[in-house]
Nucleic acid binder design. Structure first.
Lengths: 202, 202
DNA sequence: CAACAATTTGACCACTCGGTCAAAAACAGG
DNA sequence: CCTGTTTTTGACCGAGTGGTCAAATTGTTG
């Protein structure tokens, strides 16, 4: 007989504000480097007030990570059977690149977590493997049908991840090398070329 | 008339031990997450003793980063004129992959620093840009000579960096997906294929 | 408006951490 | 073995941090 109470407007607003400034803080300074004081101030409230909405610093971090993971894997989930597998894979790669461009903080939050050994994602790793294995099978089917070049599907997926996330995670370095020009127009074209040439059957 | 004293054997041993455990700590927990106590204990000494060899935590970190950067960029520096540019580029990519395999902690230390916005490498970024621009010119020459496909040299270099470092920096994720198999044999072959097909003139 | 619930915060606490300091211990060289 | 130097450490400090708590304030509802 548990009547689940829906959160008030204040609850919604403040939880959202906390998550927003938490994302800022964690992606910029890492879990350890971010402080409750800092997050609370950025969300326009006091530290005890923040703790009224989230029981601990870790709770904010975990909430962010799990919400993020959904967005992050959506394009991979969306990849499915197709008569034109090269376009299907290119679509995935470009979606991922768009995520890097539009959600760089999320990308860095995730990168930080993996770098530290994914202490808060240990569970989720199993589900990730299941999803990737499933998509690897799909890709293997395309290989077997001779529609794309013979290639290791897992390493293909790693390539898509690394090439796209690099522009968000190593943003400082990329911009330093490019004299602060916007890297994305060039990246879109480059990634298209890489996977088109990699996957084409001759 | 400054007679530069060369460090005693004890100095050499202890400085090396501190840098070794500092690398462990910083690459695993980030700058903020690592503690002097932890580093000192791992180096087999007390905290004040550690501070006798390095004036601050930051000093250890900076020392590690600057020493690392040399090793890290050596393969790029080594890339030079060649009649067979594809082999030359492949050699660079494979050297970089070997670094990821043999020095994953160094790779993660570097990744951590860049993720945080490279606060300790702001100076070095200029030098990096100079080096990369120089090599980009070399690659552009190969393009202009029709020896490799028309491609943006900067993004090519980013590709090499991201594809290779991914295996060190996202090790946890890679191994989770691959059920803990050694990723490197497959990675060597994959990276070879990627760049061979990308760069070939048809 | 009365009464209750939800929200907010100042003051505080225990603990961690980077770094200091004075004194002890180990190590040279004569 | 004496003396000066290098190395080592226990004790300590001040700042910062995650989190608590009781009390005040604000919102809500009959």
């Amino acid at each position: 007989m548990s009547t689940v109470k829906q959160p008030s407007r204040i609850q919604q607003r403040n939880r959202a504000a906390i998550l927003a400034s938490g994302l800022d803080a964690f992606s910029q300074s890492g879990f350890r480097g971010a402080t409750l004081e800092q997050i609370a101030a950025a969300a326009g409230m006091s530290k005890p007030n923040l703790i009224y909405y989230f029981p601990s610093k870790e709770a904010i971090h975990i909430t962010l990570l799990t919400e993020l993971l959904d967005t992050w894997l959506a394009p991979l989930r969306a990849m499915g059977p197709s008569d034109d597998p090269i376009s299907e894979i290119l679509k995935y790669a470009q979606s991922k690149l768009t995520l890097s461009r539009d959600y760089p903080r999320e990308s860095r939050l995730f990168a930080n977590e993996i770098l530290q050994g994914a202490p808060h994602l240990a569970n989720t790793m199993d589900a990730l493997k299941t999803l990737v294995d499933e998509k690897a099978l799909l890709i293997q089917g395309w290989v077997d049908a001779g529609k794309i070049v013979a290639i290791d599907p897992h390493h293909l997926i790693f390539s898509i991840w690394s090439l796209t996330q690099h522009y968000a995670d190593f943003d400082v370095q990329v911009r330093a090398v490019l004299a602060n020009d916007d890297p994305y127009p060039g990246a879109v074209e480059h990634i298209d070329r890489v996977f088109r040439r990699l996957l084409a059957t001759d």
